[in-house]
Computed example of a mutant assay.
Amino acid sequence: MDRLFTIIQRFAPESLEIMETRYRLLRQILHHQPVGRRQLGKELGLSERMVRSEMELLRSRGAVYFTAAGIYLTAYGEELLSDIDELIPYIFGIQTLAERIKQMFNLTEVIIVPGDSQDDYLAKRDLGRAAARFLKRNLYLGCTVAVTGGSTLAEMVTAFGDGINARDVLVVPARGGLGEEMEQQAGVIAARIAGAIGAQYRLLHIPDNLEESTVEILKNDVHIKTVVQAIKNSDILLHGIGSAMEMANRRGLASEEIDYLQEKRAIGEALRYYFDKKGKIVYEVPGIGLEFPDLQNIGIIAAVAGGKNKADAIKAVLSHQHESVLITDEGAARKIIEENNGKDDG
């Protein structure tokens, strides 16, 4: 694939420019429909004439349709956009970033979407779409999927589309947690993903930041035990990554806990574990669900996180070397590689 796009770049670079323009138009319509030509031109920096010409062409091919309210994608247009998503790293020239990060952290797969979700909320939506495509591709009969909470994984839910019937799949939250915003809680995301793909789900209604003694009591409850066992037997895990201090404050950790994290120079957080820059776990918030020893039995572990502001957190978590897949954006990928190059130079 790399060689093919290298040849196209040398022989007919204008074809890649056309593909990029049409991808950006379809993507913009997907996230803003119904949308007018003028708004499309303004958002993408394209002339009204070019937008009009491209829209007529895309309509003639059945990818969009016009209404008095604005332009919409057709089902075929959504399918077309989903298909071209696989080629975007090559069209935008970011596949080499994926290969370098894959080697850096010994990962089996790295998926990178264009843009930087720190500054561009559409890039965060694209991360959700990429995570949804990845999950659809890896689902199999009888598998159990565990997911964490967070805004990026919440974006997955609307990205699945129709035509999926995974009634033999079970979706569960990776750990208990009722402390985040409702739509970003792991249980809510698990239930919504299950609804989107026609799967079954089980929930773990347990709040964050429990006392360790309370956790041990709850672990003995027969109903909780059943759900926890399903979680620990997960086959696929999709989890977010957060910056350590941001997550500590969001979860309401006590001031002495935050002081301890600062003393230990915690950088990243995942699954209630806090990591320093070398990937060492420096703190764990008591909770019920997946524990790190359980991860060695999970076949696919995918981290989903983006934004250059999270580059250090992503590096810290990946350095622990439990993940097999990273789904991220161009902003984070470039920052990770830039900092790694600086380290090599030093």
Results as ranks from 00 to 15, higher is better:
133 R>H: 14
202 R>S: 05
334 R>I: 11
204 L>I: 14
197 I>R: 00
174 A>S: 14
95 Q>C: 08
255 S>G: 01
242 G>F: 01
258 I>R: 06
192 R>E: 10
42 K>D: 04
107 L>S: 12
100 R>E: 15
133 R>A: 13
79 E>V: 04
10 R>E: 15
44 L>P: 02
201 Y>V: 08
29 I>A: 04
290 L>F: 06
306 G>L: 06
115 G>N: 06
250 R>Q: 14
38 R>T: 11
233 N>R: 12
253 L>V: 14
153 L>C: 13
294 D>S: 10
105 F>I: 07
206 I>Q: 07
66 F>A: 00
298 I>D: 07
12 A>I: 10
258 I>P: 02
172 V>A: 05
2 D>M: 14
111 I>S: 08
327 I>R: 04
18 I>D: 04
132 A>L: 11
197 I>L: 02
331 G>H: 08
14 E>I: 09
94 I>S: 05
186 A>I: 12
294 D>N: 15
308 K>A: 14
334 R>F: 03
40 L>C: 00
149 G>N: 09
331 G>Y: 08
247 M>G: 00
185 Q>S: 02
44 L>Q: 02
152 T>G: 08
251 R>W: 14
165 N>C: 10
63 A>G: 00
50 M>R: 11
91 I>F: 12
201 Y>S: 08
334 R>W: 01
294 D>P: 07
145 V>M: 07
336 I>T: 13
165 N>F: 11
187 G>C: 11
200 Q>T: 03
152 T>H: 06
47 S>C: 05
91 I>D: 09
286 P>I: 06
220 N>I: 07
269 E>K: 01
273 Y>R: 10
76 Y>S: 12
216 E>T: 15
334 R>N: 07
334 R>G: 00
135 L>T: 04
124 K>I: 13
166 A>R: 05
1 M>W: 05
21 T>F: 00
267 I>N: 02
105 F>Q: 04
124 K>P: 06
186 A>P: 10
229 Q>M: 08
334 R>P: 00
93 G>P: 11
345 D>H: 11
